[in-house]
Computed example of a mutant assay.
Amino acid sequence: MQESCPTVELNEDTTCHHKALSSATGPAAAMRMMVELIGAREGNFTEAALVRDLGIQAPASEEGSLCGERWRLHRLAQGCEIISDALQIMEEHIEDTLSVSQVADIIGISARKLERGFADKLGRSPLKVYRDLRLDRAHDLVSQTALPMGEVAIACGFSNVTLMKRWFQRKYGEPPCEVRRHAFNGIR
């Protein structure tokens, strides 16, 4: 756990968890620790609601876990403005699902150059990356909201629920309904 305060520099090791004992070095770390413990027992949905309602911000070291695929891809794309811009455009159009040509046109390059850049920097095609970003968003919505699966599919740019469920199962190894059940029942 990391204590955060804009005017004071604090030690990164502000909490400790060992078996059934947890401790924190300050009030902000204690709040975050309690939210995590409640989340471990009650699930991601409850933890996300507490984080939102209490106005707690995740420490910088946890950004990857909060943003999943998006965070990892941006880290891989560091130093390449074209790939970073393409990722940003894809994120902004999760529910629209742009074609590779459309993304390339927005950036002002050829679709082939964009595909080569993705292959070089990320090791995957733009379409696979885009699908993974959409699946990452679907995972967040499934585990943190009670939206019907049809609305989750639409919000993530999938043409139908069956298609979303198939790709979701392939990526995460379990169907969205199981992920939701685990998140809402506190099973991790």
Score class of each variant (00 low, 15 high):
residue 25 T to F: 03
residue 78 Q to C: 08
residue 170 R to F: 06
residue 26 G to T: 02
residue 36 E to I: 00
residue 186 G to L: 06
residue 152 V to I: 15
residue 3 E to C: 15
residue 116 R to I: 12
residue 75 R to D: 09
residue 45 F to L: 06
residue 168 F to V: 06
residue 14 T to C: 04
residue 143 S to L: 12
residue 108 G to D: 05
residue 121 K to W: 14
residue 137 R to D: 09
residue 44 N to F: 06
residue 176 P to R: 09
residue 168 F to M: 11
residue 125 S to K: 11
residue 171 K to Y: 14
residue 111 A to E: 15
residue 56 I to C: 07
residue 4 S to I: 14
residue 51 V to E: 13
residue 104 A to N: 05
residue 174 E to A: 13
residue 37 L to N: 01
residue 142 V to E: 11
residue 177 C to G: 01
residue 83 I to F: 05
residue 98 L to P: 01
residue 96 D to R: 13
residue 158 F to Y: 14
residue 16 C to A: 09
residue 147 L to C: 05
residue 40 A to W: 03
residue 20 A to S: 02
residue 39 G to K: 02
residue 176 P to Y: 12
residue 59 P to F: 10
residue 64 G to T: 09
residue 167 W to F: 14
residue 1 M to S: 07
residue 149 M to H: 10
residue 24 A to S: 06
residue 37 L to M: 02
residue 104 A to Q: 05
residue 60 A to R: 14
residue 72 R to N: 11
residue 138 A to K: 07
residue 55 G to A: 09
residue 51 V to A: 04
residue 67 C to V: 03
residue 126 P to V: 11
residue 143 S to I: 14
residue 150 G to N: 12
residue 44 N to W: 04
residue 39 G to I: 02
residue 9 E to W: 03
residue 68 G to E: 10
residue 173 G to T: 06
residue 74 H to F: 15
residue 184 F to S: 02
residue 100 V to Y: 06
residue 151 E to L: 05
residue 53 D to S: 11
residue 98 L to R: 03
residue 142 V to H: 09
residue 156 C to T: 13
